[in-house]
Design a protein around this nucleic acid. Structure first.
Lengths: 204, 204
DNA sequence: GTCTATAACAGGATAGAC
DNA sequence: GTCTATCCTGTTATAGAC
């Protein structure tokens, strides 16, 4: 708040949120304990319940929302670099594959890990996951419209793209192989090109 | 063993394995307790450790392998019905979407749920996941070669297909929407058709 | 707003009677 | 091979001093 204050370390609440996102990405929601979270964030357990009265569940919700906001910024960052959209998509998947391997196959999206775990058991967190994923679909779809796709095609493509990305992350992490991400990238590049070509052929 | 014995109920070990697969699919590995598993399987906790000396981890490994064997049988079952491969792929995704909605969005692959959770924390289970997924890729790839794809194309397609399927399951479950599965099915049908067309054009 | 101590309970695993 | 009782450790959450 004070413009004079140095950037310092992030606030305690921020450190807790970031630590939770990191732990969830690595081991999921259920396996992450509050004590471990406190240790990782460098805060006593009491601070967690002070900043997040809803406890572990509240921290998880905040971590998912923060992750969601951070990830959506990557879309233009990765795809604007290529004038040809299909080429950009394929390159983005390749970048993801490299990043994953260089981080020891740990860099998976925490929202996806948690979403799989809690969809049937934690209604509030499932709603948060749906909200975050829905935001990705909306924003990603808008971006694709800007790249020349019709609204309907953009919606189809962003659904297929996000599904392929999350699924390929999951397979790559278990197999410790770039192959799923590379194959998914090729597949989506072909699909994107087909949609663009069809739209160009009948601009009704 | 005794050919005269009625089919009866499955053996205790089988009931435990099946119950574990069902619980893991719904809530993951970490959130599934041994007491809950015993209750679901209709067996005392002692029996679990009698049949699976490695405990919860051993039951999970058995459940993943059993699931893997069951799922791979679905491939010819779903795809042989259509003479045109891309059409068959799209129909299979649509069937998965219907099944999922009619079961209250709970029917996700337990291997995928667990794989996401334990990739960094349970090395033995990660290896089992890799073994099961690797089997799907091998068998699915062989099937696709039988449907007219080159070995390299089959490998690419089965990777892209499995990634899209697991990812779409994950999104569909969180969003409670068929849309990810339908979009992924369309995307893979287009990709499969492109691979088949390219192979037909240059049968070098 | 920070931190310690602890309450209240559930976790996985084991021992041993039957 | 089945089942019960129990051990020990870890869990989430809270109370209350500072």
């Amino acid at each position: 708040m004070d413009p004079m204050s140095a950037p310092e370390v992030a606030t305690t609440a921020d450190r807790i949120t970031v630590a939770m996102a990191e732990l969830m990405r690595r081991q999921g929601y259920a396996a992450t304990g509050v004590a471990e979270l406190a240790r990782t964030a460098g805060a006593p357990t009491g601070s967690i319940y002070h900043h997040f009265p809803e406890g572990k569940r509240g921290v998880a919700a905040a971590a998912m929302r923060t992750t969601g906001a951070a990830y959506i910024q990557l879309v233009p960052l990765l795809l604007d670099a290529h004038a040809d959209l299909p080429t950009g998509i394929e390159a983005a998947f390749a970048t993801a594959a490299d990043t994953m391997e260089s981080t020891g196959w740990a860099t998976m999206c925490p929202v996806a890990v948690v979403a799989a775990e809690i969809a049937d058991t934690e209604p509030e967190l499932r709603a948060v996951a749906a909200e975050v994923i829905g935001g990705w679909l909306d924003d990603g779809g808008s971006y694709l419209v800007g790249r020349g796709l019709t609204a309907a095609d953009a919606r189809t493509l962003i659904h297929a793209l996000l599904a392929a990305l999350e699924g390929a992350f999951l397979l790559a992490r278990s197999l410790r192989s770039q192959e799923p991400l590379i194959a998914a990238g090729r597949s989506l590049a072909v699909f994107a090109r087909a949609l663009l070509d069809a739209a160009a052929r009948q601009p009704a």
